[in-house]
């Protein structure tokens, strides 16, 4: 024991990530309220838009097919936002110091949250689609279309989860994280999620057409219900990858910066 101890006994990157992913999934399962909210809120919104507003927005009764892609994204955004709180909680808890003083890649604690969030949100998305079927959603897409839509949804969830993780890292405490995260959740309302953007005033339409949510929704809608996609798919992929890269970079930078000054 008193001999010099210089050996770098690093645990493999894979094991570290597996442990942190397991931890985050366990935390997700224990936070029953958040899990329920992530499913119930979008379902409530879907029912609200289908049965209450739907008739006024689109009198043909076909509104459910229009709105479901928007609800899926709303659900994904809402579900990802809890990552901000989870990450902020970890950063303010003592456990992060434990991880940081161990010979492991401690940022994997964030990766764990991201992977758990993607799993959680895909599950919630499945439930939302199931409920959509029950209220009359009749998609026309082929298996390939569905796979494409799943890919876009996953990419979107991944990008927004990382964005929320970065917000969680940057904000000082869980309630601040929740507050900042809330702002992002308004994006779907100013997009083509609930109404076509050409019904909006010109200035707002400019915002709605050029923000990341609209192309993502148009792509999913096109794949599932056969509406025209045009260049939305490229725009959606471009936006998501761009946001993902920015969010990961921002996260790593914040994680390191917070380590150096406390």
């Amino acid at each position: 024991m008193t001999t010099p101890y210089k050996a770098v006994q690093s645990v493999s990157f894979l094991t570290t990530n597996a442990v942190f992913i397991g931890r985050s999934i366990r935390l997700s399962l224990r936070n029953v309220e958040a899990l329920l909210m992530a499913v119930i809120l979008p379902v409530m919104l879907m029912l609200l838009f289908t049965y209450v507003f739907g008739g006024a927005i689109d009198t043909t009764g076909n509104y459910v097919n229009y709105v479901v892609p928007g609800i899926i994204l709303l659900c994904a955004g809402f579900g990802s936002s809890s990552t901000a709180v989870n990450v902020a909680e970890d950063m303010t808890n003592g456990i992060i110091d434990r991880f940081r003083t161990m010979p492991i890649t401690s940022i994997s604690v964030i990766t764990g949250h991201v992977v758990a969030s993607v799993a959680r949100n895909l599950l919630a998305t499945g439930i939302v689609i199931g409920v959509a079927y029950l209220v009359g959603f009749r998609p026309t897409g082929s298996v390939m279309d569905w796979l494409g839509a799943l890919g876009v949804i996953t990419l979107f969830i991944l990008a927004f989860t990382w964005l929320f993780a970065a917000i969680g890292l940057a904000s000082g405490n869980p309630s601040a994280a929740s507050g900042y995260g809330f702002a992002l959740l308004f994006l779907p309302y100013i997009s083509s999620a609930f109404v076509p953007t050409d019904t909006m005033p010109t200035w707002l339409r400019g915002v709605a057409d050029n923000q990341p949510i609209t192309p993502v929704i148009e792509t999913i809608r096109g794949l599932l219900t056969g509406t025209p996609i045009d260049n939305s798919a490229w725009l959606a992929a471009g936006w998501c990858v761009l946001l993902l890269l920015i969010a990961i970079g921002w996260s790593i930078w914040t994680f390191r910066r917070k380590a150096a000054r406390r």
């Binding site: 101890y5 770098v8 936070n31 003592g94 456990i95 434990r98 003083t101």
Partner: peptide, 24 residues
Amino acid sequence: NAVKSAISLTGQFAAVDEMLTGEE
């Protein structure tokens, strides 16, 4: 990393995971 392999820290505020059990 070499330093981290040699040390263990018990800080002023318990570095434990609140949501997990003691055994976990």
